[in-house]
Design a protein around this nucleic acid. Structure first.
Length: 802
RNA sequence: GGGCCCGUAGUCGAAUGGUAAGACGUCACCCUGACACGGUGAAAACUCCCGGUUCGAUCCCGGGCGGGCCCACCA
C-alpha cells in the first residue's frame, strides 16, 4: 500500500531499479522493433550541470521514454565534451605551467574524469535514462582515433589543408586566443587624416582617415564605396602610401561607410577583422606587420617598436612631413583579451583548415530536408551558411585537445600523414611516420596544434553509430533519428555536423532537430556567477523532487525561446505530484478486492459518469499521442493536469464515493464498474505522465498495477491503447451538466456557510434539455446530498431549498 | 546594419476568424470518510498602437512602438 510520498526514497530507488531491470537498454540485435536513435549533445565537462542542461536533457529524456513506451528500440547514448580551454586554465591554476605536455594532458584527463562522475550522478538523480553502456568521452584514445581518421579521409579528399590565416593574438600573453575569449572595450582615440600621393587629383593627394597609422607599412589597398560619386574616377587608379611609398590600388567595396572619415579607407594586414574579410574577398597580399610580442615588422626604421610607441612616433613624423591634415577625437571599440584586458592583434600564422566555402549549398539543402522543431530555427542555419566568409580554422594552439594527425617537412612544407591503422597518433611526441621528407629529404616535424572542439563534437553521430568500426551497428543507428540541441550552437555544432557527415558519409547525420532555448534567472537575466543569480539544479531536486523539476521543464513552454525560471511553476509542479499521489492512494484503497483480469469477458454496468471518464481519457490519449510525437510537452502536462485535477479528482471521485462505500445499497455491479473506471483512468494517466515524472508514476504502478498488468515496470510497459469507440459525446454532455448542477449546489452551500457534505431538502433544476439529467440523478442526490430533485425545461437555473 | 522570436488580467501564460483557458498572487468561505501542498466561490484583460482584408480580428496582411536573442560592423 502507498504511504506518504517520499521522493528522496523512491527516486534513487527507481533510478537503481531501472538499471537492474535493463529498462533503458538498447538492443542492437533486436530486429523487430524500429530503432529510434538520439544524437544528444555531450555537455562540456565543467563539473556541474546547470539549469540549461536540466531543461534540455529533460526534453531528450521525455522523448526517449515516450518512444520506449511506443515500442521503439531506443538508442540514447550519453557523451562528454571534455577538451577545452577552461579545463586547461583550471589545471594550470592548480599545477602551474611547469608540466610537460604529456603530464599536463594526463592531469587534465584526471581532472575531467572527476567532473564527469559528478555530472553523471547529477544526470542520474534527474532520472535521465541514457543507456550508460554507450557512454563516450571526446578525450578518449578511441575518440581521438575516429577524429583523426575523419581528418585523414577529408585530407585525402582535399577538404583539409594547411595555410596562412589570421588569428586573434594577445601580444601581452604571447598566445593565440579564441574569439570567445575576447572582450570589447570603449575607448577614446584619434582619427587621423593622412595624405596619400595620387596623380589623379588636382592637389596630388587623396586623404584617408585611420585610427591605426602605425599600420601604414602594411597597407595593401584603398577602398571606397562603389556608389560614392566623389571618388568614382579614382577607382582602379593607384596611390602611394606616405613614409613607405608603396603603390596601392583603389578598389570598391560595399562594406565601406562613405560617411565615415573621408569615405576612403586604407586596408592593412591586419588592422581589424574587416581587413581579413577584404583580404579574402579581393584576394589581396598579406604583409606580416606585427610580431608575436606586438612589435612592428617590415616597417623600415620603425621596425622593432611596440605598437603604441610606433603610433606616437609615426604621427610625429607625419606631422613633421605635412602629411597629417588633422586629428579628430572619436570613440572606438577595441577588442581586448578577457584575462589580461590588453588590446589584441590579428596575426597570421600557419593553421589547419576545413574547406567549407563552396559547400554551403549541400549543407543548406540537407538541412532543409530535415524536420526542424520549431520550424523557424532552420533559418538560423541558413543565415549562417549565407554569411560564411572563409574556411573553418580547425587548429588551436592548445594542449588538451585532439592532436591534429599530420607531420610536415621543415624544409619544403610537404605534409606527411600517418597510416590509418596507427591511429591515434600524438605528433608532438610520436616519431614521424617516415624518417624524412619523401619529397626533399628534409626533417619532418609533428603538428603541435590540437583540434577545435567542434572538430571533435561534429562527428558525434558517427561516433555513436560506430562508424568505420561496426557496419551492422552503423546501418542500424545512422543517420540518427533525432538531434536535440540549443539555438546558440546551430551555427557551430549543427552546421559542422551536417557538413562533416555529408563529406564523410555522403548522408545527412540526422532526420529531426529539436531546438530548445535557454533558462534565464527568475529576474529574466542570464544566469551567471557574477550576477549571483544562478540556481543550482541539485538544490531544486532537494527541495522539490526530480519529478517536480522535470515537470517544471515541461511547463516551461515553447522551444527555442528563452524562459525565466519560476519558483511558482515548480511549486505547482510539486503540488501536482502530491495530488497524483494522494488520489492514487484513494484509488488503491477503492480497488481492494478488485481484479481487472476477472472483468475480462464480463459486461460491466457503467453509469454515465463512468462513460464520461472513459470518453475523456481516450480523448486525452489521442491528443497526447500527437503531442508527444510533436514534442509538445507543455500541451501534454497541462492537459493531463487539468483533466486529472479538475475532472477526475474534483468531480468524478466525489461522484462515485457512494458506490464504493455503500455497495450493499447501490449494488456490487455498480461498484465494480466504477472500480474498473478508476483502474483504467489512473493507469492511463500514469502512462501519459511516465515520461515526464517517471519516479512517482513508477512507484504508484508498482504498488497498484504490477500484479495485474504483468509488466515488470511502468518504464517497460506499453503506451495506452486508444479505444475510439469509448469517446462518447452524449455522456460528456450529461456529465458536464451534472457538474454544473453540483457547482451550483456547492456555491449555494458556500454562500450559506454550510458544510459541503450538509444535506439539502431539495434542488430545482431548470435546463434546456432536462432529460439529460435522467442518468445522473443518483450523483446529484449522493454527491450533492439533495433529498429531492425537480427538473423543468428552460434556461439553466438551479434553486436550492434547505 | 542584417536575421529571427515575442508583446494577452498585478505576475506568468494558453487558445481561437465570432470579445478570451489555466496557474500564482489577492479577497470571502469550507478541515466533503485520498489530499489544507486540499475544496467552493469572488474581484481582476478596451488581447501594445494605427491602418487594411472580413458580416465580424486578439488571432490574417501592412506600418509603427516596445522587449529579447543571434550575427555583422565601428577603418
Amino acid at each position: 500500500m502507498l504511504g506518504d510520498w517520499k521522493p528522496k526514497e523512491i527516486e534513487p530507488k527507481w533510478q537503481k531499479k531501472w538499471v537492474e531491470l535493463g529498462a533503458h537498454k538498447f538492443d542492437p540485435r533486436d530486429a523487430k522493433r524500429p530503432v529510434y536513435s538520439m544524437d544528444t549533445p555531450p555537455p562540456f565537462t565543467s563539473g556541474d550541470l546547470h539549469m540549461g542542461h536540466v531543461l534540455s536533457y529533460a526534453y531528450f529524456d521525455f522523448a526517449a521514454r515516450y518512444k520506449r513506451l511506443r515500442g521503439f528500440n531506443v538508442y540514447y547514448p550519453q557523451g562528454w565534451d571534455c577538451q577545452g580551454f577552461p579545463t586547461e586554465v583550471k589545471v594550470e591554476a592548480k599545477f602551474g605551467k611547469k608540466l610537460k605536455p604529456e603530464e599536463f594532458r594526463a592531469k587534465c584527463v584526471e581532472w575531467t574524469d572527476q567532473f564527469i562522475s559528478r555530472m553523471r550522478q547529477q544526470m542520474i538523480s534527474m532520472g535521465f535514462s541514457p543507456d550508460w553502456d554507450y557512454e563516450y568521452k571526446t578525450m578518449s584514445p578511441e575518440y581521438h582515433r575516429k577524429v583523426q581518421l575523419s581528418l585523414l579521409k577529408m585530407y585525402a579528399n582535399g577538404l583539409v589543408y594547411r595555410g596562412e590565416h589570421p588569428v586573434f593574438w594577445c601580444p601581452h600573453c604571447v598566445s593565440a586566443i579564441a574569439k570567445a575569449e575576447t572582450e570589447e572595450e570603449q575607448r577614446a582615440t584619434e582619427l587621423n587624416f593622412v595624405k596619400f600621393v595620387s596623380h589623379e587629383t588636382k592637389d596630388g593627394y587623396i586623404t584617408i582617415a585611420t585610427t591605426r597609422p602605425e599600420l601604414l607599412h602594411a597597407c595593401v589597398a584603398i577602398f571606397v564605396h562603389p556608389d560614392d560619386n566623389r571618388y568614382r574616377k579614382l577607382v582602379g587608379t593607384h596611390a602611394h602610401t606616405p613614409l613607405y611609398d608603396r603603390e596601392v590600388k583603389v578598389l570598391t567595396d560595399p562594406d565601406v561607410d562613405p560617411t565615415f572619415g573621408t569615405g576612403i579607407v586604407m586596408m592593412c594586414t591586419f588592422g581589424d577583422k574587416q581587413d581579413v574579410v577584404w583580404t579574402y574577398r579581393h584576394n589581396l597580399p598579406a604583409i606580416e606587420s606585427i610580431d608575436r610580442y606586438g612589435k612592428l615588422l617590415n616597417a623600415g626604421e620603425f621596425t622593432g617598436l611596440k605598437v603604441a610607441d610606433a603610433k606616437m612616433k609615426i604621427i610625429e613624423r607625419l606631422k613633421a612631413d605635412g602629411l597629417l591634415i588633422k586629428q579628430e577625437k572619436i570613440q572606438q571599440t577595441v577588442k581586448t583579451h578577457d584575462r589580461c584586458k590588453k588590446p589584441i592583434e590579428l596575426l597570421t600564422s600557419k593553421q589547419w583548415f576545413c574547406k567549407i566555402k563552396g559547400f554551403e549549398e549541400p549543407v543548406k539543402s540537407a538541412a532543409r530536408a530535415m524536420r526542424w522543431v520549431p520550424e523557424f530555427t532552420l533559418q538560423y542555419l541558413i543565415d549562417w551558411a549565407n554569411y560564411i566568409e572563409w574556411d573553418w580554422v580547425i587548429s588551436r594552439d592548445r594542449i588538451f585537445g585532439t592532436p591534429i594527425p599530420f607531420w610536415h617537412c621543415k624544409k619544403c612544407g610537404e605534409i606527411v600523414t600517418p597510416p590509418e591503422d596507427k591511429l591515434p597518433v600524438y605528433p608532438i611526441s610520436d616519431a614521424p611516420p617516415l624518417p624524412k621528407c619523401p619529397k626533399c629529404g628534409g626533417e619532418l616535424e609533428g603538428e603541435k596544434a590540437t583540434c577545435d572542439c567542434w572538430v571533435d563534437s561534429s562527428i558525434s553521430p558517427l561516433i555513436i553509430s560506430k562508424w568505420m568500426e561496426d557496419e551492422d551497428f552503423y546501418n542500424l543507428t545512422f543517420p540518427a533519428t533525432l538531434r536535440p540541441q540549443g539555438t546558440e550552437i546551430i551555427r557551430t555544432w549543427c552546421f559542422y555536423t551536417i557538413y562533416r557527415s555529408l563529406m564523410l558519409t555522403g548522408k545527412p547525420p540526422f532526420k529531426e532537430l529539436l531546438i530548445n532555448g535557454m533558462v534565464l534567472a527568475p529576474d529574466g537575466k542570464k544566469m551567471s556567477k557574477s550576477l549571483g543569480n544562478v540556481i543550482p539544479p541539485d538544490k531544486l531536486i532537494e527541495d522539490y523532487s526530480a519529478d517536480a523539476v522535470r515537470q517544471w521543464t515541461a511547463l516551461s513552454g515553447a522551444f527555442a525561446r528563452d524562459k525565466p525560471f519560476s519558483y511558482k511553476d515548480i511549486q505547482y509542479a510539486k503540488s501536482f505530484v502530491l495530488k497524483l499521489w494522494n488520489a492514487s492512494k484513494f484509488v488503491e484503497k477503492s480497488l481492494e478486492g478488485f481484479d481487472r483480469r476477472k472483468t475480462k469477458g464480463t459486461t460491466l454496468k457503467f453509469r454515465t459518469v463512468d462513460r464520461w471518464m472513459l470518453s475523456r481519457i481516450n480523448r486525452l490519449i489521442k491528443s497526447n499521442t500527437a503531442n508527444y510525437d510533436n514534442y509538445d510537452y507543455f500541451a501534454i502536462i497541462t492537459s493531463v493536469q487539468d483533466f486529472f485535477w479538475h475532472e477526475f479528482c474534483d468531480f468524478y471521485l466525489e461522484e462515485v464515493k457512494h458506490r464504493l462505500y455503500q455497495s450493499e445499497k447501490f449494488g456490487e455491479d455498480s461498484k465494480k464498474a466504477t472500480q474498473f473506471t478508476l483502474y483504467v483512468v489512473l493507469l492511463d494517466v500514469l502512462k501519459m505522465l511516465a515520461p515526464i515524472m517517471p519516479h512517482t508514476t513508477e512507484e504508484i504502478y508498482d504498488s497498484i498495477y504490477k500484479v495485474h498488468e504483468g509488466d515488470k515496470s511502468l518504464a517497460q510497459s506499453k503506451w495506452p491503447a486508444l479505444y475510439e469507440k469509448d469517446i462518447d459525446e452524449k455522456a460528456e454532455k450529461k456529465a458536464i451538466l451534472l457538474n454544473q448542477v453540483l457547482t451550483e449546489i456547492r456555491k449555494f452551500k458556500a454562500e450559506k456557510k454550510m458544510a459541503l457534505n450538509a444535506d439539502i431538502a431539495a434542488v430545482k433544476i431548470r435546463t434546456l434539455e432536462p432529460e439529460l439529467l435522467d442518468d445522473v440523478k443518483e450523483e446529484i442526490t449522493e454527491a450533492g446530498k439533495a433529498k429531492k430533485i425537480e427538473t423543468s425545461q428552460g434556461d439553466f437555473k438551479v434553486e436550492v431549498a434547505v
